[in-house]
Design a protein around this nucleic acid. Sequence first.
DNA 1: CCTTGTGTTCTCCG
DNA 2: CCGGAGAACACAAG
Length: 287
Amino acid sequence: MPELPEVETIRQDLRRKILKKNIIEVEILYTKSVAGKGKELQKKLIGTSIEEIDRIGKLMIFRFGRNEHSMLIHLKMTGQLVYRIGKKIFAGGHSMSTLQTALPDKHTQVILTFADDSKLYFNDQRRFGYIKIVDAPEVEAIIAAYGIEPLTPGFTHEAFQKLIGNKKTILKAFLLNQKFIAGIGNIYADEIAHSARLMPTRRLHSLSTKDIQRLYDGIQKVLAQAIALRGTTFNNYVDSDGQHGNFTAYLKVYEHEGDLCDQCLKSTIKKTRVAGRGTYFCPTCQL
DNA sequence: CCTTGTGTTCTCCG
DNA sequence: CCGGAGAACACAAG
Protein backbone atom coordinates (compact mmCIF):
# COMPACT_ATOMS: atom_id res chain seq x y z
CA MET A 1 0.00 0.00 0.00
CA PRO A 2 1.58 3.26 -1.02
CA GLU A 3 1.32 5.61 1.95
CA LEU A 4 3.14 8.90 2.56
CA PRO A 5 6.72 7.49 2.45
CA GLU A 6 6.09 5.50 -0.73
CA VAL A 7 4.32 8.33 -2.56
CA GLU A 8 7.03 10.77 -1.45
CA THR A 9 9.74 8.43 -2.77
CA ILE A 10 8.01 8.24 -6.15
CA ARG A 11 7.47 12.00 -6.21
CA GLN A 12 11.11 12.82 -5.52
CA ASP A 13 12.35 10.33 -8.13
CA LEU A 14 9.89 11.39 -10.81
CA ARG A 15 10.78 15.06 -10.31
CA ARG A 16 14.30 14.25 -11.46
CA LYS A 17 13.11 12.09 -14.33
CA ILE A 18 10.16 13.68 -16.09
CA LEU A 19 10.09 17.39 -15.23
CA LYS A 20 9.90 19.63 -18.30
CA LYS A 21 9.76 16.71 -20.73
CA ASN A 22 7.28 17.24 -23.53
CA ILE A 23 4.43 14.74 -23.50
CA ILE A 24 3.76 13.39 -26.99
CA GLU A 25 1.35 10.53 -26.40
CA VAL A 26 -1.21 9.40 -23.81
CA GLU A 27 -2.47 5.81 -24.12
CA ILE A 28 -5.45 4.83 -22.01
CA LEU A 29 -5.71 1.06 -21.84
CA TYR A 30 -8.40 0.98 -19.14
CA THR A 31 -10.83 3.87 -19.33
CA LYS A 32 -11.99 3.65 -15.69
CA SER A 33 -8.48 4.48 -14.47
CA VAL A 34 -9.08 7.97 -15.83
CA ALA A 35 -11.74 10.07 -14.12
CA GLY A 36 -13.79 11.97 -16.65
CA LYS A 37 -13.25 11.83 -20.38
CA GLY A 38 -10.07 10.21 -21.67
CA LYS A 39 -10.07 12.64 -24.56
CA GLU A 40 -9.82 15.52 -22.10
CA LEU A 41 -6.77 13.97 -20.41
CA GLN A 42 -5.08 13.58 -23.79
CA LYS A 43 -6.01 17.09 -24.85
CA LYS A 44 -4.65 18.61 -21.65
CA LEU A 45 -1.42 16.56 -21.59
CA ILE A 46 -0.22 16.21 -25.17
CA GLY A 47 2.11 19.00 -26.22
CA THR A 48 2.69 20.21 -22.66
CA SER A 49 5.15 19.24 -19.94
CA ILE A 50 5.08 18.72 -16.19
CA GLU A 51 6.67 21.66 -14.38
CA GLU A 52 6.37 20.47 -10.79
CA ILE A 53 5.18 17.46 -8.81
CA ASP A 54 3.63 18.10 -5.40
CA ARG A 55 2.07 15.76 -2.88
CA ILE A 56 -0.64 16.05 -0.28
CA GLY A 57 -1.02 12.93 1.82
CA LYS A 58 -1.04 9.97 -0.57
CA LEU A 59 -2.12 12.10 -3.55
CA MET A 60 0.33 13.28 -6.20
CA ILE A 61 -0.29 16.61 -7.93
CA PHE A 62 1.35 17.15 -11.31
CA ARG A 63 1.50 20.83 -12.23
CA PHE A 64 1.86 22.37 -15.66
CA GLY A 65 3.25 25.68 -16.92
CA ARG A 66 0.03 27.61 -16.92
CA ASN A 67 -1.43 26.59 -13.60
CA GLU A 68 -4.98 26.45 -14.94
CA HIS A 69 -5.27 22.75 -14.32
CA SER A 70 -3.33 19.92 -12.70
CA MET A 71 -3.19 16.16 -12.99
CA LEU A 72 -3.91 14.16 -9.85
CA ILE A 73 -2.72 10.59 -9.45
CA HIS A 74 -3.85 8.44 -6.55
CA LEU A 75 -2.32 4.97 -6.33
CA LYS A 76 -4.81 3.64 -3.74
CA MET A 77 -3.81 0.07 -2.85
CA THR A 78 -1.87 -1.34 -5.78
CA GLY A 79 -0.98 1.53 -8.08
CA GLN A 80 2.55 1.93 -9.45
CA LEU A 81 4.23 4.63 -11.51
CA VAL A 82 7.17 3.09 -13.31
CA TYR A 83 9.42 5.12 -15.57
CA ARG A 84 11.37 3.60 -18.45
CA ILE A 85 13.74 5.34 -20.78
CA GLY A 86 13.07 4.72 -24.44
CA LYS A 87 14.95 2.42 -26.76
CA LYS A 88 16.42 5.40 -28.60
CA ILE A 89 18.32 6.78 -25.61
CA PHE A 90 18.97 3.28 -24.39
CA ALA A 91 20.73 2.36 -27.63
CA GLY A 92 23.97 0.62 -26.85
CA GLY A 93 22.56 -0.70 -23.58
CA HIS A 94 22.27 -4.42 -23.33
CA SER A 95 22.14 -6.49 -20.14
CA MET A 96 19.97 -4.16 -18.07
CA SER A 97 16.80 -4.78 -20.00
CA THR A 98 16.89 -8.42 -19.03
CA LEU A 99 16.65 -7.45 -15.36
CA GLN A 100 13.45 -5.48 -15.88
CA THR A 101 10.01 -6.93 -16.36
CA ALA A 102 8.53 -6.10 -19.72
CA LEU A 103 6.16 -3.14 -19.80
CA PRO A 104 3.39 -2.65 -20.56
CA ASP A 105 2.00 -5.72 -18.84
CA LYS A 106 -1.52 -6.89 -18.00
CA HIS A 107 -1.74 -4.40 -15.13
CA THR A 108 -0.77 -1.34 -17.17
CA GLN A 109 -3.71 1.06 -17.35
CA VAL A 110 -2.25 4.30 -18.75
CA ILE A 111 1.02 5.15 -20.54
CA LEU A 112 2.51 8.62 -20.98
CA THR A 113 5.20 8.94 -23.64
CA PHE A 114 7.69 11.81 -23.63
CA ALA A 115 9.51 13.40 -26.55
CA ASP A 116 12.72 11.49 -25.79
CA ASP A 117 10.73 8.24 -26.16
CA SER A 118 10.82 7.56 -22.42
CA LYS A 119 7.55 6.37 -20.88
CA LEU A 120 5.69 6.56 -17.59
CA TYR A 121 3.56 3.49 -16.91
CA PHE A 122 0.60 3.68 -14.56
CA ASN A 123 0.14 0.08 -13.44
CA ASP A 124 -2.63 -0.92 -11.07
CA GLN A 125 -3.49 -4.52 -10.33
CA ARG A 126 -6.69 -3.84 -8.38
CA ARG A 127 -7.58 -0.80 -10.52
CA PHE A 128 -8.70 1.32 -7.56
CA GLY A 129 -6.25 4.12 -8.38
CA TYR A 130 -7.05 6.99 -10.69
CA ILE A 131 -5.72 9.78 -12.86
CA LYS A 132 -7.77 12.94 -12.90
CA ILE A 133 -7.52 16.39 -14.43
CA VAL A 134 -8.79 19.16 -12.19
CA ASP A 135 -8.82 22.94 -12.42
CA ALA A 136 -6.93 25.22 -10.04
CA PRO A 137 -9.78 25.99 -7.61
CA GLU A 138 -10.55 22.29 -7.32
CA VAL A 139 -6.92 21.46 -6.49
CA GLU A 140 -6.98 24.07 -3.75
CA ALA A 141 -10.21 22.67 -2.34
CA ILE A 142 -8.81 19.13 -2.35
CA ILE A 143 -5.62 20.22 -0.58
CA ALA A 144 -7.62 22.23 1.95
CA ALA A 145 -9.64 19.16 2.90
CA TYR A 146 -6.50 17.34 4.03
CA GLY A 147 -5.08 17.64 7.51
CA ILE A 148 -1.56 18.62 8.45
CA GLU A 149 1.47 17.20 6.64
CA PRO A 150 3.44 15.47 9.40
CA LEU A 151 6.94 16.16 8.06
CA THR A 152 6.54 19.87 7.45
CA PRO A 153 7.55 22.76 9.76
CA GLY A 154 3.88 23.38 10.47
CA PHE A 155 3.65 20.08 12.32
CA THR A 156 4.76 21.49 15.64
CA HIS A 157 4.09 19.94 19.00
CA GLU A 158 1.66 22.78 19.67
CA ALA A 159 -0.21 22.16 16.41
CA PHE A 160 -0.40 18.46 17.22
CA GLN A 161 -1.68 19.12 20.72
CA LYS A 162 -4.32 21.43 19.28
CA LEU A 163 -5.29 18.80 16.71
CA ILE A 164 -5.85 16.21 19.41
CA GLY A 165 -7.87 18.79 21.33
CA ASN A 166 -10.70 17.09 23.18
CA LYS A 167 -11.21 14.37 20.62
CA LYS A 168 -12.46 11.08 22.03
CA THR A 169 -11.79 9.00 18.95
CA ILE A 170 -9.79 5.79 18.90
CA LEU A 171 -6.07 6.35 18.26
CA LYS A 172 -5.94 4.18 15.16
CA ALA A 173 -8.93 5.91 13.55
CA PHE A 174 -7.32 9.26 14.32
CA LEU A 175 -4.04 8.28 12.64
CA LEU A 176 -5.86 6.95 9.58
CA ASN A 177 -8.13 9.97 9.13
CA GLN A 178 -6.68 12.09 6.32
CA LYS A 179 -8.59 15.15 7.54
CA PHE A 180 -6.43 15.18 10.68
CA ILE A 181 -2.99 14.06 9.51
CA ALA A 182 -2.23 13.54 5.82
CA GLY A 183 -0.62 10.40 4.49
CA ILE A 184 -0.76 7.72 7.19
CA GLY A 185 -2.28 4.38 6.15
CA ASN A 186 -2.70 1.01 7.80
CA ILE A 187 0.96 -0.04 7.88
CA TYR A 188 2.38 3.16 9.36
CA ALA A 189 -0.53 3.65 11.76
CA ASP A 190 0.41 0.34 13.43
CA GLU A 191 4.14 1.06 13.33
CA ILE A 192 3.62 4.52 14.83
CA ALA A 193 1.43 3.20 17.65
CA HIS A 194 4.06 0.59 18.45
CA SER A 195 6.86 3.16 18.35
CA ALA A 196 4.85 5.37 20.73
CA ARG A 197 4.08 2.30 22.90
CA LEU A 198 0.35 3.01 22.73
CA MET A 199 -2.45 0.56 22.10
CA PRO A 200 -4.23 1.39 18.81
CA THR A 201 -7.53 1.12 20.73
CA ARG A 202 -6.66 3.94 23.13
CA ARG A 203 -9.04 6.89 23.19
CA LEU A 204 -7.32 10.19 22.48
CA HIS A 205 -8.64 11.92 25.61
CA SER A 206 -7.03 9.20 27.72
CA LEU A 207 -3.52 10.11 26.50
CA SER A 208 -1.20 11.77 28.99
CA THR A 209 1.18 14.59 28.05
CA LYS A 210 3.98 12.03 27.81
CA ASP A 211 1.84 9.74 25.64
CA ILE A 212 1.17 12.62 23.25
CA GLN A 213 4.86 13.47 23.16
CA ARG A 214 5.74 9.87 22.25
CA LEU A 215 3.02 9.81 19.61
CA TYR A 216 4.29 13.05 18.10
CA ASP A 217 7.85 11.73 18.05
CA GLY A 218 6.72 8.35 16.70
CA ILE A 219 4.86 9.86 13.75
CA GLN A 220 7.91 11.82 12.63
CA LYS A 221 10.47 9.13 13.41
CA VAL A 222 8.66 6.29 11.64
CA LEU A 223 7.73 8.31 8.55
CA ALA A 224 11.16 9.92 8.20
CA GLN A 225 12.96 6.60 8.53
CA ALA A 226 10.58 4.99 6.03
CA ILE A 227 11.29 7.73 3.49
CA ALA A 228 15.04 7.37 4.08
CA LEU A 229 14.66 3.68 3.27
CA ARG A 230 12.48 4.37 0.22
CA GLY A 231 9.29 2.95 1.67
CA THR A 232 7.81 -0.43 2.48
CA THR A 233 7.10 -3.20 0.02
CA PHE A 234 4.63 -5.66 1.37
CA ASN A 235 2.47 -6.71 -1.53
CA ASN A 236 3.43 -4.93 -4.67
CA TYR A 237 4.75 -1.45 -4.01
CA VAL A 238 7.64 -0.47 -6.26
CA ASP A 239 9.31 2.88 -6.87
CA SER A 240 9.59 4.56 -10.26
CA ASP A 241 12.52 2.27 -11.12
CA GLY A 242 10.46 -0.80 -10.27
CA GLN A 243 12.54 -1.32 -7.10
CA HIS A 244 11.20 -2.50 -3.74
CA GLY A 245 11.24 -0.36 -0.59
CA ASN A 246 13.74 -1.20 2.16
CA PHE A 247 11.69 -0.32 5.25
CA THR A 248 9.99 -3.73 5.09
CA ALA A 249 12.85 -5.27 7.06
CA TYR A 250 12.34 -2.68 9.80
CA LEU A 251 8.63 -3.25 10.36
CA LYS A 252 8.06 -4.10 14.02
CA VAL A 253 4.43 -5.18 14.02
CA TYR A 254 2.75 -5.01 10.62
CA GLU A 255 2.42 -8.55 9.23
CA HIS A 256 4.48 -9.81 12.16
CA GLU A 257 1.72 -11.75 13.92
CA GLY A 258 3.24 -14.46 16.12
CA ASP A 259 6.76 -13.00 16.01
CA LEU A 260 8.51 -12.05 19.24
CA CYS A 261 8.33 -8.28 19.80
CA ASP A 262 11.90 -7.04 19.39
CA GLN A 263 11.19 -4.00 21.56
CA CYS A 264 10.31 -5.84 24.79
CA LEU A 265 11.31 -9.43 23.90
CA LYS A 266 8.43 -10.59 26.08
CA SER A 267 5.31 -11.00 23.95
CA THR A 268 4.50 -12.12 20.47
CA ILE A 269 2.78 -9.71 18.12
CA LYS A 270 -1.00 -10.05 18.07
CA LYS A 271 -3.51 -9.23 15.35
CA THR A 272 -7.00 -7.85 15.86
CA ARG A 273 -9.45 -5.60 14.09
CA VAL A 274 -9.58 -1.91 15.05
CA ALA A 275 -11.56 0.78 13.26
CA GLY A 276 -12.48 -1.85 10.70
CA ARG A 277 -8.86 -2.60 9.74
CA GLY A 278 -6.42 -5.41 10.43
CA THR A 279 -4.30 -4.18 13.34
CA TYR A 280 -1.02 -5.51 14.76
CA PHE A 281 0.31 -4.68 18.22
CA CYS A 282 2.44 -5.89 21.12
CA PRO A 283 0.32 -6.47 24.24
CA THR A 284 3.32 -5.94 26.52
CA CYS A 285 4.93 -2.74 25.35
CA GLN A 286 1.83 -1.00 24.02
CA LEU A 287 -0.43 0.31 26.77
C1' DC B 1 -15.27 -13.49 2.17
C1' DC B 2 -10.81 -11.15 2.42
C1' DT B 3 -7.68 -6.94 1.61
C1' DT B 4 -7.28 -0.91 2.26
C1' DG B 5 -8.32 4.02 1.07
C1' DT B 6 -11.80 6.97 0.88
C1' DG B 7 -16.36 8.95 0.37
C1' DT B 8 -20.96 8.61 2.15
C1' DT B 9 -24.39 7.63 5.45
C1' DC B 10 -26.00 6.66 9.88
C1' DT B 11 -26.25 7.26 14.86
C1' DC B 12 -25.59 9.33 18.96
C1' DC B 13 -25.46 13.10 22.23
C1' DG B 14 -25.86 17.51 24.16
C1' DC C 1 -34.65 19.29 16.21
C1' DC C 2 -30.03 20.74 14.89
C1' DG C 3 -24.94 20.47 14.62
C1' DG C 4 -21.02 18.10 15.10
C1' DA C 5 -18.45 14.16 16.14
C1' DG C 6 -17.58 9.61 15.62
C1' DA C 7 -18.56 5.21 13.92
C1' DA C 8 -20.30 2.23 10.53
C1' DC C 9 -21.10 1.17 5.97
C1' DA C 10 -20.33 1.01 0.87
C1' DC C 11 -17.50 0.52 -2.98
C1' DA C 12 -13.68 -0.41 -5.89
C1' DA C 13 -11.65 -5.61 -8.20
C1' DG C 14 -9.19 -9.74 -7.93
